[in-house]
């Protein structure tokens, strides 16, 4: 992995995680349930715009990343996003990590390491 590829991979994980968490923050905590009022309330929150901004940047970062690595390796290495989001969800939203989740996170991380070491 060259420094550019590594940097793009880390940037992708960072923007994806911040984006997902921002969407989560925008969606939770609105009083209105469903419908147009719910969407209007979400649009007033800065969180949703942070999320959209992150996804816009991630879109370009991901294209740049994939153009430099084989597609098979790219999507497999991208699976680390699942791990990052789960860990961040536990840290920020207190989401529980049960036994099976810990095993799943470990296996996904191990698989990413195998692809990274072999690529």
């Amino acid at each position: 992995m060259t420094p550019l590829i590594l940097g793009l991979w880390i940037a992708n994980v960072a923007f994806d995680t911040v984006g997902q968490l921002a969407f989560k923050a925008a969606a939770s905590g609105t009083e209105e349930d469903g419908g147009l009022a719910h969407w209007r309330a979400m649009a007033m929150r800065p969180w949703i715009w942070l999320g959209i901004g992150c996804y816009g940047v991630e879109f370009l970062v991901w294209i740049a990343f994939l153009s430099l690595v084989p597609l098979s390796d790219g999507v497999l290495l991208g699976s680390i996003n699942i791990v990052a989001i789960m860990l961040a969800g536990r840290w920020l939203f207190g989401e529980k990590l049960t036994g099976l989740r810990v095993v799943g996170i470990g296996l996904v991380s191990l698989g990413v390491a195998i692809v990274g070491a072999g690529g």
Binding site: D73, L76, G111, A113, G119
Partner: peptide
Amino acid sequence: PRVLGAATI
């Protein structure tokens, strides 16, 4: 590495 990594993931 791809097949093994994919199976683990």
